[in-house]
Design a protein around this nucleic acid. Structure first.
Lengths: 140, 140
DNA sequence: TTATATTAGTTCTATATAGAACTATTAGAT
DNA sequence: ATCTAATAGTTCTATATAGAACTAATATAA
């Protein structure tokens, strides 16, 4: 195979994986959300409370994109946004009860997608792949 | 590093690489085009004449997306579209003179981006990476 | 031969995403 | 203390992308 196809391949994996995850979300009745919304929620499961800027950093998207993504999560009642009392520029995003309710689903989907993509991969392969991709990312 | 970060990493590489390529295009005065347009042109450099459906297959995008992408390439005079005389359902996309003129630029950009991302990679690393990514893609 | 199915492509609509310009708030310099 | 910088976030606009429904043309089956 042509080694010059690696970027195309990465793009295809990216979009196929997103497609798979979106389908898994729909299977569990989570409609209208895409992977980026899921990444936001997963970060909130881990950190409980994050500002817009922190979230943007975590999921590697611009802050205006975050505004749109979080608006949707608020609309669907997964998260809420409250202004910081200490610094009027900050807004804190936290999970609602409904948001917390879906934690298990998101964890299961994550487990499923990883066991799918890593089918046939040894531990060493998984580590090697991460190592090479990290090196590639740092080159960019 | 968490092996469960591989999809996020792939997404980041994908978008960083696209960003880099778009910047390289702009440096050479090619404005308004993104990587997908470049992929179309590169396929036309190789195959000269392709139908919309064939192009969609080559760049792994839906046919309605192709319609939009090709419209832009026509608008900027990189390609032209002519109906097939044999089968009225097909349209053939071919390069214009201006399109051919930029072949060298696209090839240089491709060479540059690959020498960038593969910095510090041995031949064996490059092959291993392709092998692992192909396996991952087939799993999806 | 004619009816049906398939195929190539477009149109319409929705949306994630980003760039640019903007507001509002806080920090820093003098 | 006041002026300027920086920072957090939003709004506006543009666009790649896809799903669904559509048109037009060809292939297939009866």
């Amino acid at each position: 195979m042509d080694k010059k196809a690696v970027l195309a391949l990465i793009g295809r994996i990216h979009s196929k994986a997103n497609e798979y995850i979106t389908q898994e979300l729909e299977k569990r009745g989570i409609r209208g959300l895409v992977v980026s919304h899921g990444e936001i929620l997963v970060n909130l499961y881990r950190y409980q409370r994050l500002s817009m800027k922190e979230l943007a950093g975590k999921i590697d998207k611009r802050k205006n994109t975050l505004t749109v993504l979080v608006e949707k999560l608020i609309e669907f009642d997964y998260v809420e946004k409250t202004p910081s009392p200490e610094d009027g520029r900050f807004f804190y995003i936290t999970l609602t009860e409904k948001g917390r309710l879906f934690q298990k689903d998101f964890e299961e989907i994550s487990t499923n997608v990883y066991s799918l993509i890593y089918t046939g991969f040894s531990e060493a392969d998984q580590e090697k792949l991460m190592e090479l991709l990290e090196k590639m990312y740092k080159n960019l």
